[in-house]
């Protein structure tokens, strides 16, 4: 009956998660041309940081016990720390490598994080109940929406606005934009490369933590593999949005969220298991029409 507003909220909240994950990837790609496959593993790491290390099926809360006002900043800084540490130990030593070598090493890093989690927590998915009251439905414009969906949408908007302010109004933001535009030139003009790169990783890690919080609350499960799927979608969103373009990444994240909700809603029943196949076919079609992405910045074209 109220299918349309329902679909709208589903699409917006799913798109919001994708958009935040895509932002995390786009930020790092912008400053150092690194496609960071470890991003999904940052998300999984943050999820597991909530619970006590053990191999039991039922999770015991660890940091997760803290009240929200403490928990959220704590988890965001854990995410930031993991990302900054990975830059310090791995990517700092690869500044002169090809993008392919960096991409593969980011994958290797993700592999290491994932298997460390497996070693400590075992591969069984665990039930986690974090803020279960947020999944209670409330009714808005005739549709009953879990409160969490509204929080996701609002959070995404706040994050995007805050990020935009940071990038436009602060010194570090200016330096990041300069670095994303032309890294060598920016360094020659006095941009502090290490500060910018560390800053980008910290922001990206904090975004991963935010995604982790939302996913845990929504699904109530902690699974070592939960980062992989969202990383893939986010990665595709950054490319469709135009690599290096932050507004593009956000827009494309929302677009993919909307497309998958619409496909889920309107595909005939027997075709529904194949939803992702349709979604990725759409992705290839978009790329064929717009190879540089929908919102490609002018600097993305190599000069000849």
């Amino acid at each position: 009956m109220n299918a349309i507003p329902q679909l709208f909220f589903d699409a917006m909240s799913l798109g919001g998660i994708y958009a935040m994950a895509a932002l995390g990837i786009a930020l790092i790609f912008g400053v150092m041309n690194l496609v960071n496959f470890a991003h999904g593993e940052y998300i999984a790491f943050c999820v597991f940081a909530l619970i006590v290390p053990s191999t039991d099926a039922v999770a015991v809360m660890f940091i997760g016990k803290a009240p929200a006002i403490l928990l959220i900043p704590m988890l965001l800084s854990i995410g930031a720390l993991v990302a900054v540490a990975s830059e310090f130990f791995v990517f700092r030593h690869m500044r002169n490598s090809t993008p392919v070598a960096m991409m593969i090493s980011s994958f290797a890093l993700g592999f290491v994080i994932q298997n460390t989690l497996l070693l400590v927590y075992s591969s069984r998915p665990k039930a986690v109940s974090l803020w279960p009251e947020l999944n209670k439905p409330v009714s808005i414009v005739g549709a009953s929406i879990p409160l969490l969906q509204i929080i996701v949408i609002v959070t995404t908007l706040i994050v995007v606005v805050a990020l935009a302010l940071l990038l436009k109004r602060t010194r570090i933001g200016l330096e990041m934009r300069a670095a994303a535009e032309n890294f060598t030139m920016a360094r020659l003009l006095g941009v502090r490369a290490n500060v910018v790169i560390t800053g980008a990783f910290a922001l990206s890690g904090a975004l991963a933590a935010a995604v982790a919080l939302i996913m845990v609350t929504q699904t109530g499960v902690a699974d070592v593999r939960m980062g992989g799927q969202i990383m893939l979608v986010a990665f595709i969103a950054t490319v469709i949005g135009g690599l290096g373009s932050l507004p593009g990444a956000v827009a494309a994240g929302f677009l993919i969220g909307a497309a998958s909700v619409i496909l889920q809603g309107f595909l005939p029943l027997e075709a529904r298991p194949f939803r992702d196949a349709f979604l990725y076919t759409l992705v290839i079609a978009v790329l064929l029409l717009k190879p540089d992405g929908l919102f490609a910045p002018r600097s993305s074209k190599p000069r000849v």
Partner: peptide
């Protein structure tokens, strides 16, 4: 179709192709 693209867009399109084939074969 895919090779009309170049650079990272081509890589992403091959990724999308992998996901398509995987979805079909696993459903």
């Amino acid at each position: 179709a895919i090779l009309r693209l170049t650079g990272i867009a081509a890589s992403i399109a091959t990724f999308a192709f992998l996901a398509i084939v995987y979805t079909i074969y696993s459903s």
